[in-house]
Each structure stands twice: as structure tokens, then as C-alpha cells.
Amino acid sequence: MDDETPLRGRVYGTDHDDTHPGPRPGCVYCELVGGPLDGLLLDVTGWDTEQLADGAVLATGIGRYGAGGRACYGPRPGDPFRWDWAGDTP
């Protein structure tokens, strides 16, 4: 997201009791869309172009496979900072 776009929401990986679970200045985020992590922000600060194009497989206990499962997300064509859910994997 560019510096002009205000981001809101919780960052993936922050604790639920974190006093500042939202985005931090100087970081780059992708918004996760759909699936079990819908609405969370993923910190991709420092990721190179190839890593961003690959997307991510993220640990989550609330997906189809429960504890130990993972949710797959990838960049949306034309909007690389919105990552769409592609399904869950064990």
C-alpha cells in the first residue's frame, strides 16, 4: 500500500492482547481477502518482487484443517497489495 492509503485492522501474527495490533509506520502490508484470515494485514516489509509474486502459506488454527493448518494467499491481478485466499492445506 502506498503511504497515502491509511490502513486499519490487525496485523497477522500479532497477539490478541497486543496493545498495538495494527499497522506500524514504515512497514509495507498486504490485505488478506477471503478465507480464515480475511481482513488481516500481512507485513511484507523487505520482501522482494519474487516473494511478493509467490504469495504466502500462513499458519492458522481457524481454517479447514484446524490446529496446524495453513491458509494459502496470493496477490490479486492488478492489485498486488490485496491477496486473495486460494484455499487451505494441512
Rank of each mutant, 00 (worst) to 15 (best):
M1I: 10
M1E: 09
M1N: 09
D2H: 13
D3E: 15
D3Q: 14
E4W: 15
E4I: 14
T5E: 13
P6K: 12
P6V: 15
P6C: 09
P6Y: 10
L7D: 03
L7A: 04
L7S: 01
L7K: 02
R8P: 00
G9Q: 05
G9D: 02
R10S: 12
V11Y: 08
V11C: 04
Y12D: 04
Y12G: 03
G13H: 06
T14G: 00
T14Q: 12
D15A: 15
D15Y: 15
H16V: 12
D17S: 15
D18F: 12
D18Q: 07
D18W: 10
T19Y: 14
T19I: 15
T19W: 15
P21H: 09
P21N: 09
G22M: 05
P23C: 02
P23E: 02
R24P: 00
R24V: 13
C27T: 11
C27F: 10
C27M: 13
V28M: 13
C30I: 07
E31T: 14
E31H: 06
L32G: 00
G34E: 05
G35F: 06
G35H: 01
P36R: 09
P36G: 06
L37D: 00
D38G: 05
D38Q: 03
D38T: 08
D38F: 03
D38A: 11
G39H: 01
L40H: 05
L40T: 07
L40A: 00
L42A: 01
D43W: 08
D43N: 15
T45V: 06
T45F: 01
T45K: 03
G46Q: 09
W47Y: 10
W47M: 10
W47D: 02
D48S: 05
T49V: 14
Q51S: 13
Q51A: 13
Q51N: 05
Q51L: 13
L52I: 11
D54C: 12
G55S: 05
V57P: 00
V57L: 12
A59K: 15
A59W: 12
A59M: 11
T60D: 06
I62H: 13
R64Q: 14
R64T: 15
Y65L: 04
Y65R: 04
A67Q: 14
A67M: 08
G68I: 09
G68V: 11
G69M: 08
G69D: 10
R70H: 11
A71M: 08
A71I: 11
A71P: 02
C72M: 14
Y73W: 07
G74N: 02
P75G: 02
P75E: 05
R76W: 10
R76N: 09
P77C: 02
G78K: 07
D79I: 06
D79E: 11
F81R: 07
F81M: 09
R82L: 13
D84T: 11
D84R: 12
W85I: 01
G87H: 02
G87V: 07
D88L: 05
T89W: 09
P90V: 04
